[in-house]
């Protein structure tokens, strides 16, 4: 347990250091791009992409943990799935703030029904419903089973959203990495990768902390139940 605490602290420090260095690179080292490349607001990109990828990873982790729960029926997988879904939602909301600010500055509107934006909004709504479903079922193992099944279905929107900009032609949302006529100046990749690693470390650290909190709450509830039942 002591070792795990050290890993969490180490990852948190690593995340902080990497993200601060990436901020230095983004705002001090890299010049402001011309207006045709969305100018100053292009700097959102360096954090927008990693946050988006991490939200996808978090929801996919929920899928994996949910499958594990259904196979093994061990509540620790349900706790992990729940915690990862919560982090996915947090990253998703942050992503929406970044995205909407940027598309207001670059496209001229706060929101538009582009396939990527639409499928991503559906993803967030599905995971909103995931938490609603959890709160509706109190009996612990039934809650876990329902949540696992629904979590798997909800996470199936991750590949749909990811591929929406690639399979549908003539979309508004750009594909920067790995598409024709796209890409970055080599120096920009450094800051992008630094923020990518930084957010990954942050995600793992937050997941470990969140799982610990959930487990503590579970033990606390068990103790409470025992006291209540013992009193009768």
């Amino acid at each position: 347990m002591m070792k795990r605490k050290n890993i969490t602290i180490g990852l948190s420090i690593l995340a902080g250091v990497l993200l601060v260095i990436s901020l230095y690179g983004i705002f001090v080292v890299e010049p402001v791009l011309p207006a045709a490349q969305t100018g100053f607001s292009q700097k959102i990109f360096y954090w927008h992409l990693p946050v988006a990828i991490l939200s996808f990873i978090a929801f996919l982790a929920t899928l994996v943990f949910s499958v594990m729960y259904l196979i093994k029926k061990d509540l620790k997988y349900d706790v992990a799935a729940y915690c990862s879904a919560e982090l996915g939602l947090v990253f998703g909301v942050v992503l929406m703030v970044f995205g909407m600010t940027w598309d207001y500055l670059a496209w001229g509107v706060w929101w538009t029904w582009d396939p990527r934006l639409t499928t991503y909004l559906i993803l967030l709504l599905l995971f909103g419903a995931y938490f609603f479903l959890r709160s509706m079922v109190t009996e612990r193992s039934r809650q876990a089973t329902f949540a696992a099944v629904f979590g798997i279905i909800a996470a199936l929107d991750v590949p749909v959203s990811f591929l929406s900009t690639r399979l549908i032609k003539n979309v508004l949302h750009p594909v920067v990495i790995g598409a024709k006529d796209s890409g970055l100046e080599p120096s920009m990749y450094i800051w992008l990768l630094l923020s990518m690693f930084g957010f990954t470390a942050l995600y793992i650290a937050l997941l470990l902390v969140k799982i610990d909190i959930e487990n503590m709450q579970d033990s606390l509830r068990d103790v409470k139940d025992a006291i209540e039942n013992g009193g009768k």
Binding site: Q37, T38, G183
Partner: peptide, 19 residues
């Protein structure tokens, strides 16, 4: 009725530093 500008998917450094 509505008009949206599409942003590029390629970002290159150019020696222009203007806001």
């Amino acid at each position: 009725e509505s008009l949206v500008t599409k942003c590029p998917s390629k970002y290159e450094n150019q020696p222009i530093v203007t806001k």
